[in-house]
Design a protein around this nucleic acid. Sequence first.
DNA 1: ACAGATATTATGAGCTGGTACTAAAAAGCG
DNA 2: CGCTTTTTAGTACCAGCTCATAATATCTGT
Lengths: 195, 195
Amino acid sequence: MNSSKKLIRHKSLKKLLKDNPFSTDEQLAQMLKVSVQTIRLDRVTLGIPELRARTRTMAEDAQTKVRAIDKKDIVGELLDLELNKLGISTLKISSDMVLEKTGIARGYYMFAMANTLALAVVDAERALTAVGNVKYKVPVSAGATLVAKAVVTHKRMDKYYIFVSIKSNNEEVFRAKFIIVSMDQRDKHEREQEA
Amino acid sequence: MNSSKKLIRHKSLKKLLKDNPFSTDEQLAQMLKVSVQTIRLDRVTLGIPELRARTRTMAEDAQTKVRAIDKKDIVGELLDLELNKLGISTLKISSDMVLEKTGIARGYYMFAMANTLALAVVDAERALTAVGNVKYKVPVSAGATLVAKAVVTHKRMDKYYIFVSIKSNNEEVFRAKFIIVSMDQRDKHEREQEA
DNA sequence: ACAGATATTATGAGCTGGTACTAAAAAGCG
DNA sequence: CGCTTTTTAGTACCAGCTCATAATATCTGT
């Protein structure tokens, strides 16, 4: 099978670009062990624009982002995001994020981190938190690097049920469940009904 | 004055690039009615990178943007406080506390307001949030003045059960239940055990 | 095994949006 | 007027492509 090779390469190509959209054709060619021309051909058939166009659209998108929450709204740093599935972010607790008396991080940072991540995971133009359920398991001190993982457990109508776990040094320090309501669907329904 | 022209142009240049960072030197030259070389020279002296580098860093930044909660007074203003009984605070939602897309206040502001008030009500030197249960009832827009009321429903051992309700224009927009743990009594014992 | 299709690679011209450098022309100023 | 600063011009070079053409390699059916 000749074309199966090609298909596999196409998939790999997509994945490579998803992981690092800043690769040049030459780098991609090296990674996939084919010639640069092949990469270019693949890009054309897959409708993938060149590096410059890619970065450009990314930069433009960043300016006028159309998603539930702008990436800049994420408290912490977004590491991975699969819309409607999961998201991972980190946040370093600095000394001005802790309570003076106890030296322990104010709880709302973990809440904000978890909540914004949950909202970011939802693939909707407009989304709101409806319900939150949080549990603080271990106090967090300054200097800790937190890693939050949000997972969409299930979705019913316009409601997303999201579970978020925050770990520090692989120890769970916080967990939360959110119900996020997408406003997109409502709009559509309402518009359709009205129309 | 020769250099004043230059200074003015430098300011214009910065502004133009702020408004549209995607301009090429040629476009900028046309807009400022000078030669392309002048623009390049200006960019060098101002330390402004070329278009491609600009878009590139923008795209990269967009991927991993850090933004913690503003250190501003999230808490709001304390109006009344009866330790171990109740507390009342207000918070005005400003335009930079809302999500751009929806114009609705970010949920963690209400959480932070409620949570800090709950902690304030507890009559303990050191207290931590253990569990939180929140419900967002009505979206809040910029300009709204929120009033939070926290009530200690009961206390068992070192745990305080606190109910918080946030109203805007006398309409309940948010409610939360917290379990706050006082560390005053037990920290001595536990530290010795953990150490 | 061999023609014909499909896939891959090579080659070269041309483009954009620059950098880096040199040098000439223009403007400003005492 | 001459000197300095500022602006413009010009050349060579680069990355990272596109587009077109052509050659080679690989596979596939008969």
